[in-house]
């Protein structure tokens, strides 16, 4: 495999979990809910995916387990933050703490085990095409899922009536309620979609990225996904750009170090964060557009009053 393809493949693998988690959270936030528990749902997804794949020997069962685990944990958030209208920031943060603690407990007997790996796509002839074969036809299945999911979310939010309703709820839940829309139902579904996506991102970590379970293996990727949503000003195509920019600079700086340019590694390590922030701030210069895209009732609790 040539180095060009190999580097791009590494970037895709590094970016996919960020994209999966971020695109889910984007839908959640578009509905006006701020769930800071992405890291917790992701790590629970990772451990459940690994455990299920390890015990069953089938990585696809692991993927499903990861999705379900993330969604179940997000349901807990829903009950607290939506039905009981608790503070969303505090609830989300404690969800992360809970996820990390719980995953450590579930995963205790799986640490260091060699698990089942989700195999890469392999189409005869096509995958072996020079330059782009592996890139287009030979990646892990979740890579294709992440791209398809982003496209689907774009279409759903901006081309369907339900997506319009969801965005309306995120902008003004009182008006939506007055129009007879079941705000909580929409938000529950959005929150669970976000949880499922975070769980899927976790499954990518423990079945594709590094097929193993180690405690805390998300290592802050949930927080990066959260930040990407904000910096992308809640627009799906920018999330995909942000995730890949972050992945590209992360991998690029490792190559820069290995080439021995003599640039301080601390500076290089901070580059992905700097680059992503700078680029996304630059493309968000149009204030009017940014304000328009920000869900106006984000993180505000909603209690149906009549």
């Amino acid at each position: 495999m040539d180095i060009f393809q190999s580097v791009l493949l590494t970037i895709a693998t590094a970016s996919t979990p960020l994209l999966l988690a971020a695109i889910g959270e984007l839908v959640v936030e578009r509905s006006g809910v701020l769930n800071l528990g992405v890291e917790g749902m992701m790590v629970i997804g990772a451990v459940c995916a690994f455990a299920a794949a390890y015990l069953s020997g089938n990585p696809w069962i692991g993927v499903i387990a990861g999705i379900v685990a993330g969604a179940v944990l997000s349901l807990l958030f829903g009950v607290l933050a939506l039905s009981l209208a608790t503070n969303q920031v505090a609830t989300g943060l404690s969800l992360t703490l809970l996820g990390i603690g719980l995953s450590g407990m579930i995963g205790e007997n799986f640490v260091g085990r060699a698990g089942a790996r989700l195999p890469n796509l392999d189409i005869p002839v096509l995958t072996d095409l020079p330059l782009v074969g592996r890139l287009v036809f030979g990646q892990d299945p979740l890579f294709y899922v992440s791209i398809a999911l982003t496209a689907a979310v774009m279409w759903f939010l901006f081309r369907t009536r339900t997506g319009l309703t969801l965005r309306a709820i995120g902008d003004n839940h009182k008006s939506a309620h007055a129009l007879g829309i079941n705000v909580l139902k929409y938000r529950y579904l959005a929150v669970m979609f976000g949880g499922a996506c975070a769980g899927l991102a976790g499954a990518h970590l423990s079945l594709v990225y590094t097929p193993q379970w180690v405690e805390n293996m998300t290592a802050g990727r949930g927080w990066i996904a959260l930040a990407l949503v904000v910096f992308a000003s809640w627009r799906p195509w920018r999330v995909i750009g942000g995730a890949y920019l972050f992945g590209a600079v992360t991998i690029g700086q490792l190559h820069a170090q290995a080439l021995g340019f003599g640039i301080p590694s601390q500076l290089l390590s901070s580059l992905p964060y700097l680059a992503t922030i700078v680029v996304l701030v630059l493309i968000s210069r149009d204030r009017r557009l940014t304000v328009m895209n920000t869900p106006a009732s984000l993180a505000q609790p909603f209690v149906p009053d009549r």
Partner: peptide
Amino acid sequence: AGKEADAAKALID
């Protein structure tokens, strides 16, 4: 684990 694996891939490349 992920970042360490990325570093390994970069070195091997």
